[in-house]
Design a protein around this nucleic acid. Structure first.
Length: 411
RNA sequence: GGGGAGGUACUCAAGCGGUCAACGAGGGCAGACUGUAAAUCUGUUGGCUAUUGCCUACGGAGGUUCGAAUCCUUCCCUCCCCA
């Protein structure tokens, strides 16, 4: 069997781990159960979550059994790690609904078949806990002295916002998760973002104290773009896996637009292409690196949304930026009533309605700055009214700056 | 519980009775240059039925004043010191 640990290392997934030699050994000699916890703060993942997801995929392909945990219980507390302010507390119903959304997305990457993979909600065992029992069984194993020295808490303690008691408990609950999964599912490895290191180790310690067994921890580097920004953030907000929030076309475009310096890392981390191929593409320089970006965008979109959507996004992207007018059907489209168009629609309104701009004032500014286009022609008049005369093959092609296009189809 | 300091737009941070839709920096967006990249330069960055106009905004609610982000009252919240 190929050594997954080596694969993960080579592809840039490993930041810190407890005993690397031992982890490498059990990963190549045994079939183990591992887990990753996900916050249930939204009903969709965004591209940042792809790091743990892809790591889980590699491990499952190597024959290990994933447990994906939705933090239905822990999200009710809110993890202070890496957060400068306290999180908003969410309602139980919201958290449950979020969990459903996340599961459906995970299913595209992981096999949750009988005995192959599991999806659990930690609300199932955290919510019924009794406060006193929990403190007596679990709480006594935690030293406050140590906890407040941990980076995650220290940052917050030093900042003005401080730290509330509810958040301070987060680590205990996450540690308890690991213990629970060890006891009931034989889980011996937890993976997570590097900001989770302290929380994960707390679980490792807890298992050792209560069960006398050694379990393992492994963290991923916190992936940032070459500019030092958090992954997946754009002006419009995060880049989501949910097609209602981020269309496959926009998703594809996100990857096309990554910084040159990120291409190789991203190929290794977010695609399943063999490393030879990754290295070859990663070496491309200058103009030709766009080919590598196209491969990156295509592969990542394919994993997230399937072949068909990936194909469509690719041809739409080529159509919008290349010279030929190829298939534009995958470009985000809005349908407008023919009668309404014949009555005349102010350009400003139309841009605003399809989501190119943000507000009418913003669209006016855009036009004044020469960044608004209709069917490839710059728009000069903020008061322009669109009618049927402006149709180009039954549609209007709106463009915001160089990169954002939207089609308006008339019916 | 006692004492002190604060809450300003996406973020940090000025302003401390009119000239404040609110300095400055970061970020965002657009333009030039380019390769749908980066860097650089320029412009822009509350909304609107808007050519010098109107509306909403400086934690919430009231008040003083011709006029408040700026003064007063009260409430909420945060931080620091003491208990």
């Amino acid at each position: 069997m190929e050594n997954v640990f080596e694969i993960l290392r080579e592809r840039g997934f490993i930041r810190q781990s407890t005993n690397p030699t031992e982890i490498a050994r059990i990963l190549s000699e045994e079939r183990i159960t591992y887990y990753v916890g996900f916050d249930a703060t939204a009903e969709s993942f965004h591209v940042g979550s792809l790091v743990p997801i892809m790591a889980m995929v590699h491990l499952q392909r190597a024959g290990h059994t994933p447990i994906a945990i939705i933090g239905g219980g822990t999200t009710m507390i809110g993890d202070p790690s890496g957060k400068t302010t306290m999180r908003q507390l969410l309602l139980r119903e919201t958290i449950d609904a979020n969990g459903d959304g996340l599961l459906s997305q995970l299913k595209r990457y992981l096999d949750f078949g009988e005995g192959i993979g599991t999806f659990l909600n930690n609300a199932d065992w955290l919510l019924p806990l009794s406060y006193i029992d929990f403190l007596r069984e679990i709480g006594r194993h935690f030293r406050v002295n140590e906890m407040i020295k941990a980076e995650a808490y220290r940052q917050r303690l030093e900042r003005e916002e401080g730290l509330s008691f509810i958040e301070f408990n987060y680590q205990l609950l996450q540690a308890y998760d690991f213990l629970h999964l060890f006891r009931h599912h034989g889980c011996v490895l937890q993976l997570g973002g590097d900001d989770q290191w302290g929380n994960i180790l707390a679980g490792v310690d807890l298992v050792r104290r209560l069960e006398g067994r050694t379990v393992h921890a492994l963290t991923f580097p916190l992936l940032t773009t070459a500019n030092g920004e958090k992954m997946g953030k754009t002006a419009t907000g995060a880049v989501w896996l949910d097609t209602n929030r981020t269309s496959p076309y926009d998703f594809y475009q996100y990857w096309i637009n990554v910084d040159d310096r990120d291409v190789k890392r991203f190929l290794a981390c977010f695609t399943l292409l063999p490393m030879d191929e990754v290295n070859r593409l990663g070496e491309l320089k200058g103009d030709s690196i766009r080919k590598a970006k196209e491969v990156l965008a295509y592969e990542v979109t394919k994993l997230a949304h399937g072949d068909v959507e990936a194909e469509n996004a690719r041809s739409a992207s080529r159509g919008a930026f290349g010279d030929g007018d190829i298939d534009l059907s995958a470009i985000p489209t809005t349908i407008v009533d023919a009668d309404r168009l014949n009555g005349g629609i102010p350009v400003v309104d139309l841009f605003n309605e399809v989501g190119l701009g943000g507000s009418k004032s913003a669209v006016r500014r855009l036009i004044q700055q020469g960044g608004a286009y209709l069917n490839g022609e710059q728009i000069n008049d903020t008061n322009a009214i669109l009618t049927g005369e402006h149709l180009d093959r039954g549609a209007l092609l709106l463009r915001h700056g160089k990169k954002h296009v939207h089609r308006v189809v008339i019916e």
